[in-house]
């Protein structure tokens, strides 16, 4: 069994970690923004599903991954409008609306897929990788970490964009204030509804893109219910990351690495019960983030509707 440990194998394991971690990263980044603004988007998984479906359909039709990613973003924004209308504007229960969004999107995408692709199950070609000159030549790490589709590099860059947005801009300050002390923000003359709306739309865009990545890059196909709980794991990572995008990046990649290592352990024939191996990603992320990401806190007004004039 030792001959399985080749450079190609280790490269595949690392690539698998990126494949598994990237949809989580994008969705968890989105959730981070909405949580900081006081919105708990339980329907994140539904948003990812519609993003996955839209991204797949458009890529399949147009042959362009980039148009597919844009469609996924648009679909995510469309779903998040439901959050905006019901939760931000009408102040409805975010948990109930989130669950309704999830169930609706599961049903809708399953229905559309059955009608459109039930007899054909088209698959997409692999998204071409873009090697980073120099770095891609490094053994094992080069062909895996530094030879990825462009969207992966963009995803990582978005971490720092979101981190900068939340910590270094007025909009970021407003977003965090909307989640912690929305009344104070309102008293300062800032429209809390508007800030929360912007946050919800950003969440939709990123979760939609995460779903699009899942269907276009990771799987190359759309299958009903294909998110399989990823949206909820993203929510957990966002909550454990507590508003710090870099921790969200670490958590997501840690999850991907643990998932990939679990596969590698099985392929290597390590005699560990499969159940234990399958727990590895979840345990790893929870332990790591619980130990090292304790310096920030969830917003005080999380999941609470803001109604002007009410204290």
């Amino acid at each position: 069994m030792d001959s399985i440990f080749t450079a190609d194998f280790f490269a595949a394991v690392l690539s698998g970690a990126i494949l598994a971690g990237m949809p989580l990263l994008l969705a968890a980044l989105g959730e981070t923004i909405s949580e900081q603004a006081g919105l708990l988007d339980i329907g994140l998984e539904g948003t990812m599903l519609l993003g996955a479906y839209a991204g797949f359909v458009v890529t399949n039709w147009t042959g362009s991954y980039w148009v597919g990613f844009l469609a996924a973003i648009a679909a995510g924004i469309a779903v998040s409008l439901l959050m905006v209308v019901f939760c931000v504007r009408m102040g409805r229960d975010q948990i109930v609306v989130g669950i309704a969004i999830l169930l609706s999107m599961e049903g809708l995408t399953s229905l559309l897929h059955a009608a459109q692709f039930g007899q054909s199950y088209p698959r997409l070609d692999a998204v071409p990788a873009v090697p980073i000159p120099g770095l891609s030549e490094i053994p094992v790490v080069g062909p895996s970490l530094f030879t990825q589709p462009l969207i992966v590099y963009i995803g990582v860059a978005l971490v720092f964009v979101v981190a900068g947005l939340l910590s270094r801009t007025n909009l970021g300050l407003d977003i965090r204030a909307a989640g912690r002390t929305p009344v104070a923000l309102d008293n300062a003359g800032v429209d809390v509804m508007k800030i929360r709306t912007v946050a919800a739309l950003c969440t939709g865009a990123l979760a939609g893109l995460g779903g699009g990545y899942l269907a276009i890059v990771t799987a190359g196909i759309f299958v009903p219910f294909m998110t399989g709980g990823l949206g909820f794991i993203a929510i957990v990572i966002a909550m454990l990351g507590r508003g710090r995008p870099v921790w969200v990046l670490i958590g997501s990649l840690l999850f991907g690495v643990a998932l990939s290592v679990a596969t590698a352990l099985q392929l290597a024939g390590i005699n560990v019960p499969t159940d234990v191996v399958q727990m590895l990603p979840f345990v790893t992320v929870i332990v790591a983030l619980a130990l090292f990401a304790r310096q920030s806190y969830l917003p005080a007004a999380l999941a609470q509707p803001f109604v002007r004039g009410r204290r």
């Binding site: 399985i4 494949l19 799987a219 219910f225 399989g228």
Partner: peptide
């Protein structure tokens, strides 16, 4: 229904020979 997982795991198996 985990098509993404199916692809990832199968890719590792192929890389394993």
């Amino acid at each position: 229904a985990d098509a993404a997982g199916g692809k990832r795991v199968t890719a590792s198996a192929i890389a394993g020979g």
